[in-house]
Computed example of a mutant assay.
Amino acid sequence: MMRAIRLKSPAGLDNLTVGTAETGSVGPHQIRVRLHASSLNYHDYIVVLGGIPTPDGRIPMSDGAGEVTEIGAGVTDFAVGDRVVSTFFPLWLAGQPELANMAEVPGDRTDGYAREEVVAAANAFTHAPKGYSHAEAATLTCAALTAWRALFVEASLQPGETVLVQGSGGVSIFALQFAKAAGATVIATSSSKAKLDRLADLGADHLINYREDEKWGRTARALTGGRGVDHVVEIGGAGTLTQSIAATRLSGSIALIGVLAGVAGNVATAAIMSGNVRIAGLTVGSRAQQTAMIRAIEANGIRPVIDSSFALEDIAAAFRHQASQAHFGKICLEW
C-alpha cells in the first residue's frame, strides 16, 4: 500500500483526503514509476471542484514525474533508474487527435498521479529532459505541451514572426520561452505591472496592461506597425477572443486553449471572416509531440518557471494558491 490523495464525494477542496492505493504487479509493456512530483493545471482544478464529474475516491492530477523502478517484458524504451514524465493522453501516441486516443486522461477518466507510485503502460511516459528536477519535469505534461503544439504543430511558427501571449500562467510562460527560442517577437499581456516586469525579464519584447487598456488588441496590432500579430495563444476564451481577433493579422492564427475569461459570449464572426483568421481549438498533444518538445527543450536549455511547491498532503492549499491568481508560472507538488 502507498499514500494517495483521494477526492471524496461531493467534490471540493475540503474533500481532498490522504488515503491509500495499491499499484499491483508489472505486466508486459508496463513500467513501475516511483512518483516524486506533479504540477497543477486549470483542468485539475475543475476536476477537484466537481466541474468534471469523477467517481468517488478518484486520485487526481494529470501530470506526474518520477523514476522507473521496474520494467516489464517487452519494454525497450526505458531502464530502471530512468527519470520520466507522464503524458496527458496515454493512448494518443502520434498522428491526429481522435476520440479513441483521447479517451483516457489521468486524474479525470482514470486515476491520476497524486500518489507515491504507479504501474502504467510504458507508452504513458516519456523520458524527462536531462538535468531536470522531478518538479521541473512535471510541469511539461499539460502546460508546456499545449504551448508547444499551439506554436509549432498548429501554427508552424517561423523566426521573425510575432506571438501574443496572455497572462503569466504556465502555458503562457512556456509559449513565451518557446517563441523566443525560435526567434520570434513576443507581445505579453497582464493586469499586473510586477508580472509584466517579470515577463520582460523572460524576454517579452512588448508589454500591455490589459486592465489599463481595454482595447489591447488594437494596441497589439499597432506594435506590429499595423500589420497584426501572426499568432495568438488564447487562454481567456470568450472574454478575450474579440481582442485577440483585433490583434491578429490577415490569415493569422489563434490557438484557443483556455476559457479562463468565459466559456460563452459574443464572437466577432465578421472580423474572423474578413480577416481570414484561423482559430483552432486544441487540447494538449500526443506522445510524439511531447518527445519532440523535450528534444527542443534540451537543445535550447529551456527551464520552466516554478512559482512554488507544496507537499502532497497540502494539495488543497496548493489549489487555493492557484485560485488566488497570485502565482507566476507553475505550482508544483513534491514528495
Rank of each mutant, 00 (worst) to 15 (best):
V267H: 03
G27C: 08
S168V: 04
S156R: 15
F88W: 04
A280S: 12
A280W: 02
A4R: 05
A220D: 03
I306L: 13
E313L: 12
I208H: 06
L7S: 00
E70G: 11
A311I: 00
A135W: 00
G301D: 04
D111H: 08
G81V: 00
R58T: 01
G281S: 06
A137S: 15
I187S: 06
L223M: 15
T189H: 05
S253E: 12
T20K: 08
F89A: 09
V263P: 05
S133V: 01
D197A: 13
E117N: 14
V18H: 07
E70W: 11
A179W: 12
H127I: 07
G301I: 09
V48P: 01
T224L: 05
A184G: 08
N209G: 03
E154D: 15
E154N: 15
T291H: 04
K8T: 04
R32H: 02
F174E: 03
R6V: 03
T291A: 15
I331E: 12
V233Q: 00
I257R: 01
A128N: 09
E116Y: 06
S38M: 14
A271E: 13
S133K: 00
V84G: 07
L91R: 09
W216H: 01
P53S: 11
P10H: 08
G95E: 06
G12R: 07
F152L: 14
G226Q: 14
